[in-house]
């Protein structure tokens, strides 16, 4: 990268360096590729273990790890202008705001329902009815899926 400087009245002008380019060696890409494949295999394998409530966090941690690898190396965020990292992370913060408040409201709403005696249809469906006697056939694509979860 060339050191580009613009001077005005003898003082360097801020923010004139525009481009941060970084050429990663092919070996870096290959290492990241390998790591991504391993993580994919891991998350796939873990899904067959019965982790119960831990399965969502585990899957999300693996996904975040994969996503960070892609961001840092494939999208060059590791070497890029800090401002691009800032944009990316602040986007995630706003997604977080969106999720937090909405889920917070929807999960704390039951109180109102009890007081008012109102209900949502979904509360009836919470308790699954007994399955009809119809035998569940194997459906061709999800055979490996165990019946219990």
């Amino acid at each position: 990268m060339t050191e580009t400087k613009l001077h005005l009245h003898g003082k360097p002008v801020e923010g004139f360096v525009e481009l941060h380019e970084h050429i990663s060696p092919v070996s870096t890409y290959m290492k990241v590729f390998g790591a991504l494949l391993v993580l994919t295999a891991l998350t796939y394998a873990v899904s067959y273990m019965s982790l119960g409530p831990a399965s969502l966090p585990v899957a999300m941690i693996v996904a975040v790890a994969k996503a960070s690898l892609v961001c840092m190396f494939f999208m060059h965020l590791k070497y890029d202008e800090r401002y691009h990292v800032f944009i990316f992370l602040s986007t995630l913060i706003f997604v977080g705001i969106f999720f937090t408040f909405t889920i917070f409201d929807l999960s704390s709403r039951t109180k109102l329902q009890e007081v008012q005696g109102t209900f949502f249809l979904k509360d009836f469906d919470r308790e699954p009815e007994a399955p009809p006697p119809m035998p569940v056939e194997a459906h061709g694509e999800g055979e490996a899926a165990p019946a219990e979860h």
Binding site: T43, S47, S55, M60, V62, A63, K66, V70, C71
Partner: peptide, 18 residues
């Protein structure tokens, strides 16, 4: 890469998690 990123989250959420 972003299309890939989104799939990285879609895959476990829709197909794997239980």
């Amino acid at each position: 890469h972003l299309v890939d990123l989104i799939w990285i989250f879609l895959f476990p959420l829709l197909y794997l998690v239980r």
